[in-house]
């Protein structure tokens, strides 16, 4: 069941600058969807329009098929977790969490019970009487999460909630958000610029760029089958070849090089791409015409920790980036690259 839909949402500033162009998507009940994109892509604006903190120029936002465009933010029954926590500095942790319930006119005993419940869920019981400034960043964000969950929102909005935290904390809080969201069956929209974060936490990913949506799919599909060049670049494809398709539908020509793909596709293809870690790097200089193989010279080598990054200059396909665990190749070495046909991805745009 679709809990929230965004239809033909557009937004531009008075000076004519367009921030969002025809955004369409929906979030199903109990689902966590993330919006992934670089800064300035319009993901936060989308979230703020859904929350009612900003007005769209056209299009609408609907909850359970009902348009909520005329409903002010404070009546939308949504909650938001902000990047900078945004806790009420003058209130204790308990009072921060109780704030939303108080606004809803709930009785004191009921508030105490509900707040205690959510504080124990988020492991904040011991901090109930502390003021926000006495807490660490991670604790503050947990309070913010508790404050957002306690009101049982129709939609939980998370705006880069982990970006101010260090890595270890980011991972643990990410898992906690996912655990609580699933346990409480809350519908959530999560905005982030971090690909790993978005893949790890969400049921579906919306990739945005320049104010429009590039792809909506599960993390697995986005990872394996990026829909556009932008998505491919954003999620780690680094080698792109402009191609024209030959008669047989799985053979492509890039300059003078023939490339073959494992699967046939009927869609128009302008470009093939492949991840650096999927290219095979050999020293054997076979001259045989093995499929998708080409010769090159190593022109750069960087240690990345788990692997080495080699940049290989080829005659016809330019510089190709390859990640390999082999440390033996040296600058200037002649090598042979193989681009496995099942790892090549075709892009239509």
């Amino acid at each position: 069941m679709q809990a929230m839909q965004v239809k033909h949402l557009s937004m531009s500033y008075e000076n004519g600058k367009e921030v969002l162009t025809d955004i369409n998507f929906s979030v199903n009940a109990g689902e966590l969807v993330s919006i992934l994109g670089p800064s300035g892509c319009g993901k936060t604006t989308t979230l703020r329009i859904i929350a009612g903190l900003q007005r769209q120029t056209s299009g609408n936002v609907a909850i359970d098929e009902q348009s909520i465009d005329s409903v002010p933010a404070f009546k939308r029954n949504m909650s938001m977790v902000f990047q900078n926590y945004a806790l009420f500095p003058h209130l204790s942790v308990f009072e921060n969490v109780a704030f939303g319930l108080k606004q809803r006119g709930i009785g004191k005993t009921a508030i105490r019970k509900r707040v205690a419940e959510i504080l124990s869920l988020t492991e904040l019981t011991d901090l109930a009487n502390h003021r926000p400034h006495a807490l660490s960043g991670g604790q503050q964000q947990r309070v913010s999460l508790a404050r957002a969950l306690v009101v049982n929102p129709t939609l939980l909005l998370l705006d880069e909630p982990l970006s101010n935290l260090d890595r270890a904390l980011r991972l643990s809080l990410r898992e906690e958000i996912r655990r609580l969201q699933q346990k409480l069956g809350i519908t959530a929209l999560f905005v982030t610029h971090d690909q790993e974060e978005s893949f790890a936490i969400s049921d579906r990913v919306i990739v945005m760029n320049g104010g429009h949506i590039e792809q909506i799919a599960s993390a697995q599909i986005v990872y394996a089958h990026p829909a556009t060049t932008f998505v491919a670049k954003f999620i780690g494809f680094e080698n792109f070849f402009n191609v024209t398709r030959q008669e047989t539908s799985n053979e492509y020509l890039s300059g003078e090089t023939h490339l073959y793909m494992a699967e046939k596709t009927t869609k128009p293809v302008v470009r093939l791409c492949i991840r650096p870690e999927n290219i095979r790097l050999d020293t054997s200089m076979d001259t045989d015409t093995q499929q998708n193989s080409l010769n090159g010279i190593i022109c750069d080598k960087t240690y990345l920790g788990r692997t080495y990054r080699y940049v290989v200059a080829t005659d016809h396909l330019g510089q190709i980036k390859v990640d390999s665990e082999e440390a033996t190749h040296q600058l200037g070495d002649a090598v042979r690259l193989t681009l496995p046909s099942d790892k090549l991805i075709a892009l239509a745009e």
């Binding site: 009612g52 002010p72 404070f74 029954n77 909650s79 938001m80 902000f82 009420f88 606004q103």
Partner: peptide
Amino acid sequence: DQTIEEASWLSGASKIK
């Protein structure tokens, strides 16, 4: 920080409140 006010609106408090 203005987001504190936004957090309050979303918590159900009108702008005046």
